[in-house]
């Protein structure tokens, strides 16, 4: 079982959390101007890296607040936790081809 550090509550067991998938996908603002390809890309396409991945987590059975985490998808080791609106450290995750 993973041990996940909620930025508000500290380290807790994985079973208290639910994962919200890839982080930092911003909803397009000028939606009328989007092509079908751009909409499809926003809705469905994902990075799915084999390596460092930034993702959203919800402390569902705790403070019920969202936060972001960076985790390695092979070793499952977390490298950082940060609150919404905060910038992550380093540029890992952007290093994948997409």
């Amino acid at each position: 079982m993973l041990q996940i550090t909620c930025p508000w509550c500290g380290p807790r067991a994985e079973s208290e959390f639910s994962c919200g998938g890839e982080a930092h996908i911003a909803r397009p603002l000028d939606t009328d101007a989007l092509s079908d390809e751009q909409w499809g890309d926003y809705l469905f396409m994902r990075k799915n890296p084999k390596g460092l991945h930034r993702e959203q987590w919800l402390h569902a059975a705790g403070c019920r607040r969202w936060f972001n985490a960076e985790r390695h998808t092979v070793s499952y080791a977390f490298t950082q936790f940060y609150k919404p609106g905060e910038a992550p450290q380093g540029n890992a995750g952007a290093g994948t081809a997409r």
Partner: peptide, 13 residues
């Protein structure tokens, strides 16, 4: 598991 993983192992819960 609800999260992305390539580890060929899963979580106990």
């Amino acid at each position: 598991d609800s999260y992305v993983g390539y580890g060929q192992r899963g979580s106990f819960p």
